[in-house]
Amino acid sequence: MTEPPGAPPHIREDRRDRPIYAIVLRLLAMMMLALTYAIGKLLVERGANLGEILFYRQLFAFPVAAGWAFATLGLALVPMAPMRTHVARTGLGLFGMLLNFGAVALLPLAEATSIGFTMPIFATILSALVLKEPTGIHRWGAVLLGFVGVVIMAHPESANFASLGLIVALSGALVTAIVAIVLRDLGRVEQAPVIVFWFTLLSLPPLGIVMIWAGQAHDPVGWALFVALGVTGGAAQLLMTAALRWGPVSIVIPMDYSQMIWATWAGWLLWASWPAPSTWAGAALIAVSGLYIAWREHVRRRASIISPNEDRAGRSG
Rank of each mutant, 00 (worst) to 15 (best):
M260G: 00
Q259P: 01
L183W: 11
D17E: 12
W68N: 01
G136D: 02
I152T: 12
W213Y: 12
W140P: 01
V78G: 10
I195W: 02
P63G: 11
V143W: 00
G267S: 12
P19H: 08
T124K: 03
A65S: 08
T85V: 04
S278H: 10
I181P: 06
D185G: 11
P193M: 00
L201R: 03
P5N: 09
G172D: 10
Q58F: 15
R188M: 10
F161R: 06
S289D: 06
S278F: 10
A38W: 06
A103T: 04
A22G: 15
G282W: 08
W268Q: 13
G96S: 13
L225V: 04
L92W: 05
H10V: 07
L144K: 00
Y21E: 14
T2Y: 02
A272D: 13
M1L: 03
L239H: 03
A224Q: 04
W265I: 14
L94R: 14
L291Y: 15
T72F: 00
D17K: 13
A71W: 07
G116Q: 03
A61H: 12
F117A: 01
A128P: 10
L99Q: 12
A263S: 15
I286K: 04
Q191E: 10
Q259V: 01
D185A: 12
T2S: 09
F147D: 05
L244K: 14
A22E: 07
G282C: 02
F95M: 15
I115G: 07
Q237K: 00
